[in-house]
Design a protein around this nucleic acid. Structure first.
Lengths: 342, 342
DNA sequence: TTGAAAGCGCTAACAC
DNA sequence: GTGTTAGCGCTTTCAA
């Protein structure tokens, strides 16, 4: 490894002169600066960030703590953040939790030890006390999910509106018995989406029994598929289905296909998010497009601002973006005669 | 920030005693260790990694340099690496290049400054000289693409075999005029896949004109869609199409759908990779499943081994995994009468 | 069993 | 315009 000292020795200068030359200090003569820069380039000198940080230089790393990068939702966020942060010389550390609070804690400890400049987190349902403590002194914001203990900076989508909108679309078509396959209510997103679902039914004057909600791990394909069978096997099965997460939508679509359900004749379906391929499924999936890119962009800008503003400005900041319904072929009015139980 | 010194002052001990107690040094009494550990936990002490690294501690960060995390290919790799590396206390820095060699260079400079323990890279077509130099002293391996200047450690899939297999499938069905939409030949993957495509035709005794190859940026949707139109507009259009990248496959499928091409009656199609949704497209896409997870797992294990083995062991290491054809409905024998030119 | 001191690479205050 | 020195937080001699 090449240090300023190596350069200094080679040029018979002091380390401080070398350091100043590299920092383009006005007190150093042009000639010396040129010599130093030339030597540095030749020797392949790269300043040691660890040493700089010990001298109080601000960290340039930002931690991104998410459940699973394979989820298109999160990879979009990662991409957008990476792109924006990179322009200001920041680096992104990727930490996956798989919704396990202990993994979340371990990651936050590591990030803390690395003295990250900031953290963007999609928190688990109930973060560990210690996780809260680690996060507190850091510049940080929550994404999508929002846990009260983790501060007042949050960027997300309007989960309530999104599910209300997809459910209302079904109600408008005349469905009076609608199934919901969503994420656990202990997750803030899960409970908001469930609320949106119920709210749409209520606003339409439908009784509570009109909604058949199933909840489970939002990333579990197994749960999603089982939920579909469960709902369709009911004595009076629903005539329509709404989903409450991208992964669950994928699972539901797979299950419906393998069961050979005739969509939208037998059953109408509204998805969540608009992944590539959703338009190809069956008659084309009616779904809600989510402004994930915009959300991530907002968040990246906020973080950059937050990191460059000296004082620990912890003003509450909330950004809620709405989703928009995309109507394709998977939804239609229910058949006059209710579907036979299977 | 809490330091060992803070703990030492509070407990009226010396920093060295505190440091040793935390390191579980046998010379320290149990009583002192307990006191120190208790205080550390209470105060929320987290050892500063920068300081440790200055003392020569090995870095625990690994850089992952890829074109774009949104590509399912790369997010799978990132997930697998993250999962495995995490188990040994490593962290992953995500660097996106978008196939721009200057961005690649900037990222490598940053990673170098961060004293990363290792780098896993999907190199751009022609990495910068300086990038090569930065990478040389680091533990590193190439993924998928292989550039001779970047060393002899490589993990990838058998691009030649994959395209040969998908093309042969079409040849076996009787196609004698096959279009190929692939990535630029300046990329090692691009040229290997093109070779595989041609090799399948040659082995079948077909003339060179049997293959209509189009090459372009492997991640460009615009190029992919244009390529389809170009091929189908030829005086004697192909009766089948093979693709040479995941993104191009998506683009081709979209274009074929919007053109309303009747697959497989008018045209047979074989894709690349097996993204969610490929099975839903039209009659179901015949494609090649790629062992990306296995590849990433191999790579992660190699890196862990490489990082724990003291000597800079730069033994050449190559891992080539084959893809496997998945036959669905998008391929069929060509119609007896050649398709009319449009 | 514990403490004092040196030093990792860098920068900044203080010389000259 | 350049050199000397101190110190960031930690580990590791060397002393006691």
């Amino acid at each position: 490894m090449i240090t300023t000292r190596n350069i200094a020795e080679r040029l018979e200068l002091s380390v401080s002169t070398v350091g100043r030359a590299l920092a383009d200090d006005p007190r150093i003569s042009e000639r010396t600066k040129l010599r130093v820069r030339k030597a540095a380039a030749e020797m392949g000198y790269v300043a040691d960030r660890a040493a700089r940080m010990m001298r109080g230089a601000p960290s340039n790393v930002v931690g991104l703590v998410i459940p699973d990068i394979r989820n298109g939702f999160y990879s979009t966020i990662a991409h957008e953040l990476s792109r924006t942060l990179e322009s200001r010389g920041h680096q992104l550390i990727l930490s996956e939790t798989d919704d396990d609070r202990m993994r979340e804690l371990r990651h936050l400890t590591e990030l803390s030890a690395s003295r990250v400049a900031g953290v963007l987190i999609v928190p688990t349902a109930r973060p560990h006390r210690e996780s809260v403590r680690l996060l507190t002194p850091l510049a940080h914001a929550q994404l999508l999910r929002r846990h009260p203990a983790l501060g007042a900076q949050w960027f997300g989508i309007d989960d309530h509106q999104v599910l209300k909108e997809s459910t209302s679309h079904l109600v408008a078509q005349g469905h009076t018995r609608i199934g919901y396959v969503g994420g656990a209510a202990e997750l803030p997103t899960g409970s908001e989406r469930l609320r949106g679902f119920r709210s749409a039914l209520k606003d339409a004057g439908l009784p509570e029994e009109a909604g058949l909600a199933t909840l489970g791990k939002p990333s579990s394909v197994t749960y999603g598929r089982r939920a579909v069978r469960l709902l369709l096997d009911a004595t009076v099965p629903p005539t329509a289905l709404v989903t409450g997460s991208v992964q669950l939508t994928l699972a539901v679509l797979e299950e419906l296909e393998s069961l050979g359900v005739d969509v939208p004749r037998e059953l109408s379906v509204v998805g969540f998010g608009d992944e590539p391929g959703f338009s190809w499924w069956g008659p084309g999936l009616t779904t809600v497009r989510l402004p994930v890119t915009d959300m991530a962009a907002d968040c990246a800008l906020w973080l950059l601002h937050r990191l460059t503003t000296k004082p620990l400005d912890d003003t509450a900041y909330t950004s809620v973006l709405p989703g928009s319904l995309i109507v394709r072929g998977s939804t239609a009015p229910p058949r006059a005669t209710p579907r036979r139980s299977r």
